[in-house]
């Protein structure tokens, strides 16, 4: 994989990001009526916030200058001032909430990838048997369930009835911890249900994709050749089939990021998990447009960057792409 390939991909991503900036800018301009009027109508907006936002929007200046002000502010890390958080810079508000979201999503993805791939491989191998049918049904049904609904059901079962896990939040309020381990275990207890809910959805998807990819791979000639060489079933699948089936998985993980984000918003809302998803929900509820705009930008750019990384990783791992000159 040479520099030119990498460079091309990076440039394309940058162009997309710029397009997102432009899109984001205009998106929040299509509000019917004068933006300032709408801001004024917002009961949560303090005078300070309105002044700052007026400055940020540059509403007294011509359109193209407003756009440049917008871009300039972005590069300075200024995403405006939040209404909901009474004058706090949007960037700061968001910054405080990134870690919890990353923690939850990260744990869920790792769990989902491991379990999903495992189930997918078994399904494809024992195609048509009971295991396969059960896992297929599981995938279909888990996809049909709204993520938030799964969360509610889990809360009912595990928190309310069985009392194993807490119902909400990231940490038990008011508790002081003796050390890192105690703090971590409290967080983990709170994290269990959100992560489980998120994983459920993803596991279904990953298992399904892994299964269908592997089924396709198993029809290839080189698999027949591997069998002809006298190897056992599990060797052929492990050493020949799965490595080929793993490549599309990387693409799928990237494609599923939209799903992950949608899930995060719902799950954080249900479990009051202090992350970006919950923040977006609150911002919508109180029509805090600067905050909303900032979050939207962050999320979209993150997805683009993640896609870029997945692309490059795929290019690195696939020998056919790696040696392209």
């Amino acid at each position: 994989m040479n520099k030119q390939y990498v460079l091309k991909k990076i440039i394309y991503s940058l162009i997309t990001i710029f397009a997102v900036l432009v899109f984001n800018y205009f998106l929040f301009r299509i509000m019917p009526g004068n933006p300032l009027q709408i801001l004024m109508r917002n009961p949560n907006a303090s005078a300070e916030a309105i002044e700052k936002t007026r400055e940020m929007f540059g509403l007294d200046k011509p359109s193209y200058i407003q756009f440049f002000i917008y871009i300039k502010s972005l590069f300075q890390g200024d995403l405006g001032t939040s209404f909901l958080y009474k004058g706090q810079p949007v960037a700061q508000v968001i910054g405080n909430r990134i870690l919890p979201t990353l923690l939850m999503i990260g744990a869920a993805e790792i769990l989902a990838i491991i379990v999903g791939i495992f189930i997918g491989v078994i399904s494809a191998w024992k195609r048509g048997t009971k295991i396969d049918i059960v896992s297929l049904s599981f995938s279909l049904i888990s996809y049909a369930m709204p993520t938030f609904w799964i969360g509610i059901v889990f809360v009912t079962i595990f928190s309310v009835n069985l009392r194993i896990f807490p119902t909400s939040g990231m940490m038990t309020p008011g508790l002081s911890y003796a050390d890192v381990i105690e703090k971590s275990s409290d967080v983990i207890k709170h994290m269990a249900l959100p992560v489980l809910t998120m994983s459920l959805l993803l596991i279904g998807q990953y298992a399904l994709v892994m299964r269908s990819t592997l089924v396709d791979v198993l029809t290839e000639d080189y698999i027949t050749t591997a069998y002809a060489k006298g190897f056992k079933d599990d060797y052929v699948i492990k050493k020949h089939a799965v490595p080929n089936a793993m490549l599309p998985m990387i693409t799928i993980i990237a494609i599923n990021l939209g799903l992950v984000i949608a899930g995060a918003i719902q799950i954080e809302t249900i479990f009051s998990w202090p992350g970006i998803g919950r923040l977006m929900y609150d911002a919508i509820k109180s029509r805090d447009y600067p905050l909303l705009q900032g979050i939207f930008l962050l999320i979209t750019i993150s997805v683009i960057v993640a896609n870029l990384l997945a692309d490059l990783t795929y290019g690195y791992l696939d020998p056919r792409v790696k040696s392209r000159s």
Binding site: D221, Y222, T224, A228, K229, G230, K232, H240, L247, D318
Partner: peptide, 24 residues
């Protein structure tokens, strides 16, 4: 049957592009 494959009888498939594992 499996154990004596390749040792006694081996097979060369149609020169289809896919008889060799592409990632190995």
């Amino acid at each position: 049957v499996r154990k004596q494959r390749w040792k006694n009888v081996s097979i060369v498939f149609q020169s289809a592009m896919n008889a060799l594992n592409p990632v190995m």
